[in-house]
Design a protein around this nucleic acid. Structure first.
Length: 492
RNA sequence: GGCGCUAUCGUCUAGGGGUUAGGACGUGAGAUUCUCAAUCUUAAAACACGGGUUCGAUUCCCGUUAGCGCUACCA
């Protein structure tokens, strides 16, 4: 029950990203805050991979997370790739641990087996919503008789393990940034702890791992506040000491909603490929929510990771959600670029836009299309520019209205988001879209070509997209839509 | 709908019972420059609303409103 006071245990914090896609800017933000906390207190910064959702697992994701965090300079002391005394650091390799702990809860009566099918659960939920009741697990299996359980088990029915939240009372905890927070138990659901596939849910895994890994401070995003009472209850069920909780504000889109890929570039891969410098991204993230003294460097708001270690104050973090404003990030990035030595600036170009890895495939694409070497730039400008915006006369297909065209671009964006970034896969989702929406492949590809290259004439589209990269391609489409939506429906 | 969190310029933020409410980005104007950037100067721009408490509230308390989050065998 007692929340960790100033015990002598060494400070240990963690970030726990999920390998479900591109590494997220929110992960970098929470990572930075955790990193600073550990470095300021001679503590340990742990990276744990939360790969318990097999349906959303993306194999390439983990390595991208490693690369992106290292790119930003957020180095961890323990993790899947560097090891450490509390491993393994991949939750998929710890399933026996979770099953054992779920078993303990079963034995102590703090958890129970639930045999309800997904269909029944869904039906229950619909009924509750229709009756204007809060959707909650109705407790069907909460007090199954021993005989019934035996029978179900013998019949080989699949089951999950749910936590048994007390019917009465409430659970309170302290959020280090906001003070005391209390939830009545009748607002806390009997959460699934162990799924029928044997993998744990986040709730079980994070509590068990944080305890076993001796985590002293859980610094995570605000969206977890609502489920914290479940975690506190689990600590109590196990008889474990609570960590401190710090719930950070959520990064926001312009419209204040939680930052999302539909409205913002959120992939760290994008920021790297679009030519942001890691110092600028880290600096900008450090501005979100405050934490640095306002008069630092005469209030210019420019500081390095080391300066943040020296001066950042976690207790000064504001709890209002900051809008992630690219305009200011770009200004900061410009400041860092101008501060580079000419050699360092050139080196930065050589390692990104002018690297062999980027240029060589481009050369292969245009070799048959030039008569003079000097025509290289004529054909490839769109791969080297940040912006291309075709006029309506270029992108609008004949016999298609502006409205249906923009709607179609949104569809293209949606299917490309799901695509594996290989030529065959890009081509197949686009052709499928043509079939579904009755747009000819020619119209479809020509429109996309116009958006991405600014012209109706270009090197092969799909190959160009592969070279340009998924993150930048999707961003260019998003920006196109954004600009077109703002533009009054006028002339070409 | 239920529960929770949040509220200072357009945005990021400082401040705090009595202030000309400060800084940064962006925006406007001017200067400088062969152009464009950069740079310099300068201007406009905020305490959500209503009740308290108080000699005095932007600041403390309560409420309202608004925004956001959660409400999964996702994290």
């Amino acid at each position: 029950m007692s929340q960790r006071s100033d015990s002598a245990a060494p400070i240990r914090v963690r970030i726990a990203p999920s390998p479900t896609g591109d590494p997220h800017v929110g992960t970098a933000y929470i990572g930075l805050i955790n990193y600073l906390y550990a470095r300021q207190r001679n503590g340990q910064f742990v990276l744990r991979i939360e790969d318990t959702d097999r349906t959303r697992f993306v194999p390439t994701s983990e390595q991208m997370i490693f690369d992106s965090l290292r790119w930003l300079g957020l180095n961890w002391d323990e993790g899947p790739d560097v090891g450490g005394p509390y491993g393994p650091y991949r939750q998929s390799e710890r399933t026996a641990i979770y099953q054992e702990h779920a078993g303990q809860l079963l034995a102590s009566g703090h958890a129970y087996r639930c045999f309800c099918t997904a269909e029944k659960l869904e039906a229950d939920r619909k009924q509750q919503i229709a009756a204007k009741l809060p959707p909650r697990y109705p407790g069907t299996c909460r007090s199954l008789s021993a005989e019934a359980i035996e029978a179900y088990l013998a019949a080989g029915l699949p089951f999950v393990i749910r936590m048994r939240v007390p019917q009465e009372g409430s659970t309170s905890f302290t959020d280090e940034l906001r003070g005391g927070i209390t939830f009545d138990h009748h607002n806390v659901d009997d959460q699934v702890l162990l799924k029928s596939d044997g993998y744990p849910t986040y709730h079980l895994a994070n509590v068990v791992d944080d305890h076993l890994m001796r985590i002293t401070d859980v610094i995570r995003a605000e969206e977890w506040i609502s489920s914290t009472p479940k975690h506190v209850l689990l600590y109590q069920f196990f008889g474990w000491e609570l960590p401190r909780f710090w719930h950070m504000p959520l990064l926001r889109n312009q419209d204040k909603s939680k930052i999302s890929k539909r409205k913002n570039p959120v992939s760290l891969i994008y920021y790297r490929e679009a030519g942001y410098l890691p110092q600028a991204v880290i600096n900008f993230l450090g501005l979100m929510g405050g934490g640095m003294p306002a008069d630092f460097n005469n209030g210019t708001e420019k500081f390095t990771l080391d300066e943040m270690i020296a001066s950042f104050r976690h207790e000064n973090i504001r709890t209002g959600g900051p809008v992630f404003d690219l305009t200011k990030l770009k200004w900061l990035n410009g400041e860092y670029i101008r501060a580079l030595s000419p050699d360092a600036f050139y080196a930065a170009l050589r390692s990104t836009l002018l690297s062999d890895a980027y240029l060589q495939p481009i050369a292969a694409l245009i070799q048959t299309r030039v008569e003079l070497l000097s025509q290289f730039g004529d054909l490839t400008g769109f791969l080297l520019n940040d912006n291309t915006h075709p006029p309506e006369s270029v992108f609008l297909p004949k016999n298609r209205s502006r409205e249906e065209t923009l709607a179609f671009v949104a569809e293209q964006l949606a299917v490309l988001e799901t695509a594996d970034w290989q030529p065959a896969s890009i081509e197949s989702v686009l052709k499928q879209l043509s079939t579904d929406k009755q747009w000819s492949v020619k119209e479809n590809f020509m429109l996309l070509r116009a958006i991405l290259t600014g012209s109706t004439m270009s090197p092969p589209l799909v190959e160009s997209m592969v070279i340009f990269g998924k993150a930048r391609t999707l961003d260019r489409m998003r920006r196109f839509l954004e600009t077109e939506k703002k533009r009054p429906p006028a002339k070409a």
